[in-house]
Design a protein around this nucleic acid. Sequence first.
RNA 1: GGGCGAGUGGUGAAAUGGUAGACACGCUAGCCUUAGGAGCUAGUGGGGGAAACCCCGUGGAGGUUCAAGUCCUCUCUCGCCCACCA
Length: 694
Amino acid sequence: DWDRSFRTSDPRYYRWTQWLFLQFFKAGLAYRDEVAINWCPKCKTGLANEEVVNGRHERCGTLVEKRLLKQWLFKITKYADRLIDGLADVDYPSRIADQQINWIGRSVGAEIDFVVAEHSTKITVFTTRADTIFSAAFMVLAPEHPLVAKITTKPQRAAVDAYVEQSQSKTDLERQAEDDKEKTGVFTGAYAINPANDERIPIWIGDFVLAGYGTGAIFGDIHDERDFEFLTRYDIPARVTVLPENEQEAAKVKAKEYPYTREGVLIDSGEFSGQRSEVARDKIIAWLSQKGAAREKVNYRLRDWVFSRQHYWGEPIPIIHCPEHGVVAVPDDQLPVELPEVENYEPTDTGESPLAAITDWVNTTCPVCGEPAKRETDTMPNWAGSSWYYLRYYDAHNDKEFAARNKLDYWGAVDMYLGGMEHTTLHLLYSRFWHQFLYDQGLVPTPEPYQARRGQGIILAADNTKMSKSKGNVTNPTELIEAGYGADALRLAIAFLAPYDQTTPWNPNGINGTKRFLNRVWSLVQEQVAAAKNPPAIAEQDSELALASAIHKALKKVSVDLEEFGFNTAIAAMMECVNELYLLKTTLPLGSKVWGENLQLLVQMLAPFAPHIAEELWQQLGGEGSVHVSTWPEFDPKLVHDKLVTIVVQVNGKLRGQFEAATDATEASVVKMAQEDKKVAPHLTGKKIVKTIY
RNA sequence: GGGCGAGUGGUGAAAUGGUAGACACGCUAGCCUUAGGAGCUAGUGGGGGAAACCCCGUGGAGGUUCAAGUCCUCUCUCGCCCACCA
């Protein structure tokens, strides 16, 4: 419906994107914080975690750097559980749901406090293996951990400072240890007290510990592969507290031959010795909690969503900074905050948006006090406008609300949402988050935006890599159409290529087949239309029945396959049907009313796949109105069943013969026919039939 | 290292546990045509055979079953996603 079209870059649209942002802001879910964010030096902007793939910006492939910047963030982590649980109520393919669950990375464990010896400070660590607490041999802080400077002893200061500086200059990719690269760290000189057994353990810093996950600190022991590697390298004494039940294996574990990371039986763990580790885990957390040194904690791999961009192109974040009143929302009646006209929209390298240079735009007044204030100059990411666009289709031109409630109620959730797999942890996740928030605010009627989701497969180039403009391996559809194939043949070729959700290479010759098929349909109808001027006198009932049967069998297959996205097999069924019609027309002359009616059914089936040719043929066959608004035909169950069925006979599991039998033949008669079949009989002579399966 | 998925002809692919390779591409031969990069007909998994027909065959090894591409166990390979996430 073209009356409902709009652009997300149009101020009449992004006015509401800004308004929705302010709802997040007012609910405390959009906040400003100074964080080490991913920075793309080429695009000169900050990025969300989701936009960094293998240490590179997913758009341009540039190696991402870390920068400490004051940024707008969305508290998507608050919705982590909802984003997981909501998947149970929608129809998504499991690989999409699994990927989102995996991305959110829910991890249940505990936070445990270690007191720093000779200090009053505590360091909190996160662990999923509280049962191994008695084996804690050392502690490691991320280089960015706020306590590093405070606890480092004088003799170690120089080494620690050097290490911190070195880690900060590394990109994420460089910090990631590859297989041959060893973990590095440096001792702070300080010690922590293990709350379980009061042992002193050394505190190290190491860049394999991530500042952004958990508490940025861990305790290390022999029951973790990374920790094992670290303690081996730096010769830190360690103790085994979990043993496998297998005695031989347990001996090797005791000898510290390798890190034992699975569940087992606790030893050397105070009152918990002798218990199964998975049972002891919760008890130890409870025990430490009583002492005030631990609490249950769930962590997520998901990070809060960095929402600021330092681009000109983006919706301005509708915020005013007032020296007196701080961060103030732009009042609704002053929306939209439009992008100013500029000479130069190139990004700067300062971490500031190019908007910051436009003083007469930046300088404004505070909506609260009317005193001079400055506009926020960061803009929103491309994901902002796309996070709610589907709602705007319900009420595309409303200038009072983002969409009227009665229209939202009427349309409800999106029934079927098609899109690429690459959106799974970007747009699809983001828009579910927005929608869940809007639902909580009472602004939309459904808890989830999309009832069902399907991901289409990617068509690869002939070289088996993804078609992309930058690689220049793209087959341009326009060229095929200009080469005389037509849009219908192209649509069919794409749909026929492979199952809808499958990634598959483009076969440049496939379109020959679909064009040939359409030509055959076309010719058949032309013959019919011409012959109908002098209809044949004789009609043969058996052939007419065979004709209807061929059509209805295809109709059944197409009807079922359409619902299941089985487009390739639906098209195959129509091809099969047309092949059969070509055989039939030799015994049943074209031109009859029966032919006309059945060909109309064929054209109706074809219409969703080849809309243009179907419309033309529909009119040639005398169809009323447009084929595309005609009622989808129902297949006749009586016609899809054959009168004869092929019976296949196996003897001792081997295929020995086949014959045709009437569909309504009795079991006894079919068994008799099978035994008497001239190919089957020789395999039975001189043998006793033990069992017959019909 | 973790998660998910997939391995079937020369190619893309079909196949509620019941005739493996539907449908198509490509190829071969023939027909038709002034011509074919059009159309039509026939053939096209491998091996054997004059033929009827027989044997083998869905990455590999086992298993369940009257019957396995399909179910189970182990294993190899490839693809996608995530990844020092404690």
